[in-house]
Design a protein around this nucleic acid. Structure first.
Lengths: 175, 175
DNA sequence: TGCTTCCGGTTGCGCTTGAAACTATCGTCT
DNA sequence: AGACGATAGTTTCAAGCGCAACCGGAAGCA
């Protein structure tokens, strides 16, 4: 019930014993990306959460509508990478707070057009520069050359992870 | 209280009107990092979720214990960047699945030492190379030079976001 | 026209999460 | 020793989440 014959060594020996490099969490890319994304997200959300009491989903809707002016919920979801229920609830909240308005689409009553109210746009106009400044200050100190490389890497990893996810999904069905 | 004279234009004009570059969600670093981290996390978790029915927190505990052999819950949390309740629940689950064992610390009965059972270690030994391979395949196609730059950028951003978060927390208290 | 299928969006449900409260133990100070 | 504050870990609770079911409404088709 205890650890078996090889278990007498230190953890270090055990972890390093394999044929590949040992797995160290703090060097493991998925983990690091997750931690980083959370830290950044948390830091940023302080800005808009404190000021206007909205969360990440609402922030995304706000920015998307600020950027495009008027679009359907479906389009918002596609553009902001959010599940339709998340969009639905975020919009409901923003609507309750008079930041977003709905207008029926006479040509298709299933969907409706969303847009910022003047109040919503005011908030957007207030937040957007702050958010951009935040991003700027965040990347401050990264060498310009590194920035371009970083950019490329992110794009690549995003594509690649999408593909890998799809691949695993296939394997799962296959066996 | 509304937006002023320029409010009559299209959204495009409005978005681009500001003195800074317009805020585009799909180019906004915090958003992109979040999306990327989620995609990667999702792809990876398929591997261990499908095989052993564990989630991200359990995975992290497993890896941490695999790496260090024996440590307290507090230490696990510190190393894996997880809230203590998350650790607590993840450990409880792993314990129920006979992957992790607890041993009381006679010197301090508040804490207990956690370690992988043989079964838990077997799972770890199975998953670790797969996870490493996943990470390797993920970064495949990134130029070596870009990789180093990417590495540096991540480290920098992690530090920087921590600092910025702290700074905002201070401002919040201050007003 | 009537029927079926598809689609945008909402709602109900179970699960996960973090904050806060709580328990039990430890260390300190008198 | 006894009291009090800190600390490791659990539990409770409310909020947020994605999935699946659902609800009009639209589109294809006989």
């Amino acid at each position: 019930m205890t650890n078996g014959p090889a278990e007498d060594g230190t953890a270090d020996a055990l972890a390093g014993r394999g044929d590949t490099a040992p797995l160290k969490l703090e060097e493991f890319l998925p983990y690091r990306l997750n931690v980083l994304a959370n830290l950044v997200s948390q830091a940023l959300s302080r800005i808009y959460a404190d000021r206007y009491g909205i969360g990440v989903p609402e922030w995304r809707v706000l920015v998307t509508l600020g950027q495009y002016g008027m679009m359907t919920g479906k389009a918002v979801g596609a553009h902001s990478h959010m599940h339709k229920t998340k969009v639905s609830r975020a919009v409901a909240l923003l609507e309750k707070g008079k930041m977003v308005a709905r207008r029926a689409n006479r040509a298709d009553l299933r969907e409706s057009f969303l847009s910022l109210t003047p109040a919503g746009r005011a908030i957007y106009e207030d937040l957007a520069p702050i958010a951009l400044d935040f991003a700027k200050r965040l990347s401050e100190g990264i060498a310009p050359a590194d920035r371009a490389a970083f950019e490329r890497a992110i794009v690549h990893l995003t594509e690649r992870s999408t593909k890998l996810a799809a691949e695993f999904a296939k394997n799962r069905r296959t066996g």
